[in-house]
Design a protein around this nucleic acid. Sequence first.
DNA 1: CGTACGATTGAGGTCAATCAATCACAGTGG
DNA 2: CCACTGTGATTGATTGACCTCAATCGTACG
Lengths: 231, 231
Amino acid sequence: MLFPACPLLALGLEFDALATFDAILQRPRPLKRGQALMRQGEPFESLFVVRSGSFKQTVAEPGRRDQVTHFYLPGEVVGLDDIGEASCFGNVVALESAFVCELPFPHLEGLVEGLPALRGELYRCLSREMRRDQRMLCLLSGRTADQRLASFLLGLSERFRSRGCSPYRFHLSMSRSDIASYLGLVLETVSRTLARFQQQGMLSVSGRELAIHDHEALGAVALASAPMMTA
Amino acid sequence: MLFPACPLLALGLEFDALATFDAILQRPRPLKRGQALMRQGEPFESLFVVRSGSFKQTVAEPGRRDQVTHFYLPGEVVGLDDIGEASCFGNVVALESAFVCELPFPHLEGLVEGLPALRGELYRCLSREMRRDQRMLCLLSGRTADQRLASFLLGLSERFRSRGCSPYRFHLSMSRSDIASYLGLVLETVSRTLARFQQQGMLSVSGRELAIHDHEALGAVALASAPMMTA
DNA sequence: CGTACGATTGAGGTCAATCAATCACAGTGG
DNA sequence: CCACTGTGATTGATTGACCTCAATCGTACG
């Protein structure tokens, strides 16, 4: 099995279905840091499964600096938000050297036709994506910088854990500025908040290396019965 | 044709396909103001097409006041974010007397099997939903109250226009508090901002009746090359 | 070794949340 | 018909979180 971590393969595919599925996956393609995988407005043709490395999705809006809308880690699927559309919603750029597998969408759609299990899996991917966005929406709405950053780090931690990496020590492949854009803050605030978290002993950061010391406390900050807009 | 405004029917269905489609749509069901159409955590079984009236989706989070994540107008589909999941993501509550048609998902899935046009339409609905969320994400991220409210009103205006209602005069079926929650503000700010917009001659509000006078100016506010986090 | 870029740290200003009072309106009951 | 009550909306004053501007620092890379 080529892609043990790929959500599209999580459950239920028969052995021969798997073989058919593998057949339409193109062989891994390498990208260098800064290279674009998709460009905003270009025609949508394929999904991509991240094999290694990581990516950010950004959308450009008239009169504003680019906004980071997603980070993609290995095993995650890029392009789900373009299904059913003619063109790509945003730019997807490699944050470091990376490999991706291309998954031409028309092929996938054809395959889905005869494989209810795969269709279910595709739906599940789509809905997971939607719920992720909705959670993000809640996170950006009236949360303090502390809560946003704590949630972000715990989210990353969880994603690393679920793919077998340490949830306590990991590398931030994105810049402070990327994180800030993603969280709707400015980079100075990210920097300051990280410093404070470190000072409080919840974690330590050195450049882009992060170690979470007090997962518990971080969770408490994230959920904090907000100082802001208290119910 | 029963539902001219339903996005699932926008394009390309053959006549007999339409007939099959109608067959699985349950007859319209009435709801009174405040009644729940879906409840957070309950098993997901059906999509609903809003025939008349309007709804809000809210999600409850531990230690926080409910957060409004969506408003649904006639012709829109409720429950898309639950496809592929076992249970409902949020509560959906009627903002006024309303009618909905139930669309049992297993039936729809079966129907989609043999109808590529319908499947395409379903994908389009899903991706439209995702992009809406992403736009919302951008809106909540580092925009001023003015920009959020202006965008919100223009968005509503556009939705009314696209279903044949006046884009310049319409009724806000949601409370200031709902709007505030949706935009990540407090109700006082919504109230003040509306008052200021009115004072500047861009619109007039009286209770929940809204009239947009200067669509242009409102657009300028929404896109304003932000005073905040200027590029 | 010097340049560049990302990150940190500091000082000051501003927008929106908070707290609080008042108002408008609808429904209820005397 | 008119208090009474409750909910939603408005308006004001204050405060605090976060943005802005600016300087410095560190690390990577040519």
